[in-house]
Structures are given as structure tokens and as C-alpha cells.
């Protein structure tokens, strides 16, 4: 049997094509089911599977009222704004602090450098659950009394994201040519200027990579938001989790609500996928 060739001269592999087509379809069907269901009327969704609506698109009752209901009725709109308010600072602040630290770890010599860095690597594995009871005491009414506010969640995400961010940025910075930093020093630049004008701009790919990952983590987080945000400040993910508990009346809002919570990370993900893959291949884990 002569095998046909692809444009780049490699032989076509029918087995790979069929298997991959099946796998890709399997991976897409669940999300597709949610998307289709979210546009079906309550009665339709309760009496027939979503696939029947796809097979008979003109005989089905399509509606956008689930979205309207979830957005205003189930108050996902405020959750949505809260998520943005939580996620943007919780992404930017750790990067600012970590970038300075990564610069020092890469281009400076100081005592205990190796030891401090090993400590940072070690805490990447520590489960974040260790922090909850002590931080509830520090941030809560027994301590600062800011538990429930946005700032407590920013602080927590900053702390939890910091080790991985320092690690990723340091890995990237150590691939930058050292001569650039040295010649800047000879030209009389201070470390602050070298960082701000040279190293930070050169590290943009790594910063974008970490920013994408961190944004997804913060947006998709349930645990910290649930424990440390009061109900009027809570995120869209917590709102969705509360919706998941409802049965009967209002259950049709769930699918629309789920899609509302997914759409922002999905857009971020699709536009920044390139950077994110680079960030992930730097090989690190988060506790």
C-alpha cells in the first residue's frame, strides 16, 4: 500500500487522524452540551437532551432569558465585577514584587542567596490549606479585621502566587545575556534603572506567561474567595457554586451562569495561549 504524503513530505497517518478526531470531539462535547443547554427554555431542557435540540434546531425553543435571569436575577453581574476587581490586582501585585526579587536572585550576589531560593522552591509544594486558620486569625476580627474585603484576598493570592512567580521569572532572566546588565552598570546605571529600563522590558514574555496563569488561577479559585470574601464582595465562581446547590426553580439559570463564569478566562486563554504554554514549559508547580 502506498501511503499518501502531507505537504511537508511526512506520510499521512490515518490512525492518528481518526483517533485524534475522536479525542478532540470527546473533549469538546461536554462544553458544547453546556453551551447548547444554556440557550434552551426551562421546559425544553427538562424534557429532552440538549442533542435533540441540535438535531432539530428549528423545532426547539431557543431563548436568551437564562442569561438575563442569571445576570440580574441570580446577581451574577455583581459577582462578575467582583471577580474582575479581585483578579486584576491579584495578578499584577505579585508580579511587581516577584520581578524585583527575581532580578536580585539572577544578577546580584548576597549572603544566604542560595538558601533563600531553596526555601522559595520548597514552599511551592506546601499546600495553601496551611494558611487558612492562621490567616483567618490575622485578617479576621481577632486581628486586622479586613477579612471579607478585597484586600485580604489580594494579599493571599499575592503570597500564594509569589514563589512560582519568582521561580518562573528567575528562570527566564537567567537566560538573558549578562553582558547587557554589566554594560549598563559600567554606563553608570543603578540597579533600579537597569531593572526598570532593561531587564523588566526584556522579561515581558515570561511576565505575560505568568500573568496568564495567575489570572486563571485567581479567577477560577473557589476556596480563598469563599473563605475570605463577604457575600457582597464574592466572586462569580462562588456565586456559581451557590447556584449549583439550587434545585427546581432557578436551576435553568445554572447553565447560563456557568457560561458567564467561563467566558472571561476562555477569552484570556485563547488570546494568550502562546505565552501560557511558554510559562508552563518552564516546569514548575504551585502549592
Amino acid at each position: 500500500m502506498s501511503r499518501s504524503l502531507m505537504k511537508d513530505g511526512r506520510p499521512r497517518s490515518p490512525f492518528s487522524m481518526v483517533t485524534m478526531a475522536i479525542l478532540a470531539l470527546l473533549w469538546t462535547i461536554p462544553t458544547l452540551g453546556l453551551l447548547v443547554t444554556s440557550f434552551r427554555s426551562r421546559d425544553d431542557a427538562a424534557t429532552s437532551g440538549w442533542w435533540t435540540a441540535l438535531l432539530n434546531p428549528f423545532g426547539s425553543d431557543w431563548t436568551t432569558s437564562n442569561y438575563a435571569g442569571a445576570w440580574t436575577g441570580a446577581d451574577l453581574s455583581s459577582g462578575f465585577i467582583n471577580s474582575i476587581v479581585v483578579a486584576i490586582p491579584a495578578t499584577v501585585i505579585p508580579i511587581m514584587f516577584a520581578a524585583f526579587a527575581a532580578y536580585a536572585f539572577t544578577f546580584m550576589d548576597f549572603r544566604f542567596k542560595e538558601l533563600i531560593f531553596l526555601l522559595i522552591i520548597a514552599v511551592m509544594v506546601v499546600p495553601i490549606q496551611v494558611a487558612f486558620q492562621p490567616m483567618l486569625n490575622i485578617l479576621g476580627p481577632r486581628g486586622l479585621g479586613i477579612s471579607g474585603e478585597y484586600i485580604s484576598v489580594w494579599l493571599l493570592h499575592t503570597g500564594f502566587g509569589m514563589p512560582l512567580c519568582i521561580y518562573t521569572l528567575r528562570n527566564y532572566m537567567s537566560t538573558l545575556p549578562r553582558s547587557v546588565v554589566e554594560s549598563a552598570k559600567i554606563d553608570g546605571c543603578s540597579h533600579f534603572q537597569t531593572f526598570w529600563r532593561l531587564v523588566a522590558p526584556m522579561s515581558i514574555p515570561a511576565i505575560a506567561a505568568f500573568a496568564t496563569l495567575q489570572f486563571l488561577w485567581v479567577w477560577n479559585d473557589l476556596l480563598i474567595a469563599k473563605l475570605f470574601l463577604k457575600s457582597e464582595n464574592t466572586t462569580v465562581i462562588v456565586k456559581l457554586q451557590q447556584l449549583l446547590g439550587t434545585q427546581g426553580q432557578g436551576a435553568e439559570l445554572l447553565t447560563a451562569g456557568a457560561f458567564i463564569s467561563i467566558i472571561v478566562p476562555m477569552i484570556v486563554f485563547i488570546t494568550l495561549q502562546r505565552f501560557m504554554i511558554r510559562g508552563m514549559t518552564s516546569g514548575a508547580v504551585k502549592g
Binding site: 461536554p30 477560577n220 456559581l240 445554572l254 467561563i262 478566562p265 485563547i270 495561549q273
Partner: peptide
């Protein structure tokens, strides 16, 4: 094919649970 398999990574565990509870 890779993007289709990669896409669920953007979805929260809560969102994924909503999706699979439907299944």
C-alpha cells in the same frame, strides 16, 4: 486538535463540575 483538548484548562473546577453534572 490540540486547542480543542487544551481548552478545558481555562475552565474552573466549579464550571467543570456544572458541565459534568449535566452529563
Amino acid at each position: 486538535a490540540k486547542s480543542m483538548i487544551f481548552l478545558p484548562m481555562a475552565i474552573s473546577a466549579v464550571g467543570a463540575s456544572a458541565i459534568w453534572l449535566l452529563i
